[in-house]
């Protein structure tokens, strides 16, 4: 079964006739720490990753930072990549999602610190000193982490629902899994995510 969230766009179609490894082989070599595989992965999927970063932050240095961080983190954390769990580009996109969510969370934190400092400077006698956390921003970091803990096919199924906006019937079509199985995985995963928010989300907001 193949559950991927990325279509491959080859920026640099091979015109010289040099043999190049297929995507699966690039994934395997990447996980094994072959330096050339990082360059191949960049050749093939940097555009996808950067497109996502640009969609989140607009074109410019912020998006470039995200793309850079995604590949650097993916490389240094390559032991976490399991080729049998899915294609490398889907994993890179997952890393990119973390970077985007982390950046939003960091900025939210900075915003609150700035506002708290400003409130202190004004010596406001009453009122909250710590402005509220943006709940969705904080939730995202937790939830993406929880998604990483899911096995297949649960992870692929919920990603198709969340990130490709597919209905459960479309997911069943795409994956070849029975409708009932898809529905039950969706329900269990949503329960699991809710539990994570109830356990860790509450502490985060305390």
């Amino acid at each position: 079964m193949f559950i991927g969230t990325v279509t491959v766009v080859d920026f640099a179609p091979d015109v010289s006739g040099d043999p190049r490894p297929d995507d699966h082989e690039v994934g395997r070599l990447f996980a094994a720490g072959d330096e050339q595989a990082l360059a191949w992965a960049y050749e093939r999927w940097a555009g996808q990753v950067h497109g996502m970063a640009v969609r989140a932050f607009g074109p410019g240095p912020d998006a470039e930072d995200i793309t850079q961080q995604t590949f650097v983190s993916a490389w240094t954390g390559r032991r976490a990549y399991r080729p049998e769990q899915g294609p490398l580009p889907a994993w890179l996109v997952g890393v990119c999602r973390h970077k985007i969510a982390d950046t939003w969370a960091r900025r939210d934190r900075q915003r609150r610190e700035t506002e708290a400092a400003a409130a202190e400077a004004r010596a406001t006698p009453a009122g909250p000193v710590t402005p509220g956390v943006d709940t969705a921003v904080a939730d995202r970091v937790l939830l993406l982490d929880e998604l990483d803990r899911l096995g297949q096919p649960q992870k692929g199924i919920i990603e198709l629902a969340f990130f490709e906006d597919l209905t459960h019937a479309q997911i069943a079509d795409r994956t070849g899994l029975p409708l009932g199985t898809v529905k039950s995985h969706i329900r269990r995963t949503l329960e699991r995510l809710r539990t994570r928010l109830e356990v860790d989300g509450a502490a985060l907001h305390a």
Binding site: V6, V9, A46, G47, G51, V93, D139, L144, E159, L193
Partner: peptide, 23 residues
């Protein structure tokens, strides 16, 4: 109670990649 997760993650910025942009 389930929608909180959906609303946090099913946002356009995190959606599957669309057209690539060359860095």
């Amino acid at each position: 109670s389930w929608q909180r997760s959906v609303d946090a993650l099913a946002v356009p910025q995190l959606a599957a990649p669309g057209a690539p942009v060359a860095p």
